[in-house]
């Protein structure tokens, strides 16, 4: 329970920001927080609170897996730091690159192969798999 108290401000913020399917569990000295954030901004806000409570995320006592919820068929924005986003033939960095999407480009989410890799289509019609952490829903 001690970890829940340590990260209570984070859980409170997630509730206040409307994170859905929020699950908070403590197991073997690690707190696991999962859920779906209404936007990428909410996800970032939670990570900033995480960093305030645990500077540099260094304690290793929290797994925060709250990602922005994007609907199938909706438009998503590429949020790479500065490079292009690789679009690959299959879900994995070992898969050949079949296309690229620029930072801030808006592309279509076709389906979710899994939590980490989403199938996408660019406006040029390039289709393949992209790393989900580099995509966020358009508010």
């Amino acid at each position: 329970m001690a970890l829940q108290e340590k990260y209570q401000a984070l859980v409170d913020a997630a509730n206040a920001a409307g994170v859905s399917n929020l699950a908070v569990r403590e197991q073997d000295g690690v707190l696991y927080i999962d859920g779906a954030a209404p936007s990428g901004a909410v996800k970032d806000q939670l990570w900033d609170i995480y960093n305030q409570i645990d500077p540099n995320y260094a304690s290793g006592d929290l797994i925060l897996n709250v990602n922005a919820n994007a609907e199938i068929g909706s438009q998503v924005k590429v949020i790479t730091q500065d490079s292009n986003l690789n679009i690959r033939k299959g879900p994995g960095t070992d898969q050949p690159i079949v296309g690229k999407a620029a930072k801030d480009e808006v592309i279509t989410l076709v389906s979710k192969a899994n939590d980490l890799w989403w199938s996408v289509r660019t406006n040029d019609g390039e289709e393949g798999y992209a790393y989900a952490q580099y995509l966020e829903p358009i508010a």
Binding site: V30, N56, I63, L64, D115
Partner: peptide, 14 residues
């Protein structure tokens, strides 16, 4: 850290 914690690890030791 966002990317690594999304892989569903038991713990991240950094």
């Amino acid at each position: 850290m966002q990317k690594v914690q999304a892989t569903k690890p038991k713990k991240v030791d950094s």
